[in-house]
Design a protein around this nucleic acid. Structure first.
Lengths: 204, 204
DNA sequence: TTCACGCTGTGAATTATTTCACGATATAAA
DNA sequence: TTTATATCGTGAAATAATTCACAGCGTGAA
């Protein structure tokens, strides 16, 4: 089991590596990856070590091999499916963002209360009525939920997702959601982050 | 100078406290805040200690006083202004989100390349042509930039923001941006976070 | 073949962050 | 007034994360 922060950085390295690959790069050194990822070379080496991949002291890391190796650590070989709940501006932005980007990880269903959105297909992802959440999640074998509803509804939506059997939640609503201990939850708190930037813009 | 992580949590506590205040609460205990913020009671006490506020062993913390105290640590008394660059779905979501929420921190200008958006007012925030960025940022005294443009343009936009004199950047584009050392930058990487959730949904 | 170089892999050291644990204390009740 | 109780504040301990620093190695050049 890889540490939380390491998983995050591996995901970033992989994105960089994919770009490098498309630019024709064969190998890359830890110090190059480090600059592109905004971390130290030692950190890069340690992260890569933690997934058991080894570079070559003279060539660095093999771009294609390392992508492969990160994939076999991070990805489910069967692929994983996510559902997005709340098709507002933010929800649509996320759908656009992800649309067909990672083969092993796709948002396959969206849910909303607004009947004008039902059955519309947004970025290749069909929109369903919120009260069909459990049914559809189970039918499609979805195991990740993305919450982009207003704060007031987030806990209710989360409960429904958990009942439906979801294992991980990405929560954009600015409230802490209570979930059973076996569910992994990650919050993206945009207001908090902006306030952090504001503080350090002044103090740094 | 308060630690980065502490600033983030203080911002979260404040949001919770504001809700409690509006519900009429006068006092709150560290263990209550802890549950609502998803941290330990000891952490809450330490964070609050770090801004020099003291509670009462019998009543806990005064809700209104603590809000006040967090404000005087985090906020600029004069207020701070932010500019958003890139008025797509994500940009609009952010504008909607922040619109008039914090008096000491407002997004006062948006920028885009698309001339159809020029001079439109979105959530009380006027949209300008991207090439007027430096001019407007300086005119309005903006010191925070929010980047919501595609990856390929992020570095260019960042350079313009830095030239215009901005001190902090909140970057939503999935690339690491290079900035001078005196600029504070925080990344929100939505893809990375989803991949993290996917990983731990499987492994946890 | 041998050498010199610059990189990787990693134990150890360091730094950052969180939690423990307990004395001090404010209040409500007796 | 005294006592019982539950909380705060915080030094110290524990844990987590990062960086240092260098032995060892693969490769290109001589």
């Amino acid at each position: 089991m890889v540490a939380v922060k390491t998983v995050g950085r591996l995901s970033i390295y992989r994105r960089i590596l994919n770009r490098l690959l498309s630019e024709g790069a064969k190998n890359v050194f830890s110090h190059q990856l480090a600059v592109m990822a905004g971390v130290t070379p030692a950190q890069v080496r340690r992260d890569i070590m933690s997934i058991g991949y080894s570079g070559n002291p003279n060539r660095g890391y093999g771009v294609a091999d390392l992508i492969e190796s990160i994939g076999s650590s991070l990805d489910d070989p069967e692929g994983q499916k996510a559902a997005l709940v709340g098709v507002g501006n933010l929800g649509r932005a996320i759908l656009t963002y992800f649309s067909g980007r990672r083969p092993k990880l796709a948002i396959v269903a969206a849910f909303d209360n607004d009947h004008k959105k039902f059955d519309r297909v947004i970025q290749g992802c069909r929109c369903y009525a919120l009260d069909r959440l459990e049914e559809i999640v189970q039918e499609l074998g979805i195991d990740i939920g993305i919450i982009t509803v207003p704060s007031g509804e987030a806990q209710k939506v989360s409960n429904a997702l958990v009942r439906a059997g979801i294992k991980g939640i990405l929560n954009y609503a600015p409230v802490r959601i209570q979930v059973p201990r076996n569910i992994y939850i990650e919050d993206i708190d945009m207001t908090m982050t902006l306030e952090k930037v504001a503080y350090f813009a002044r103090k740094k």
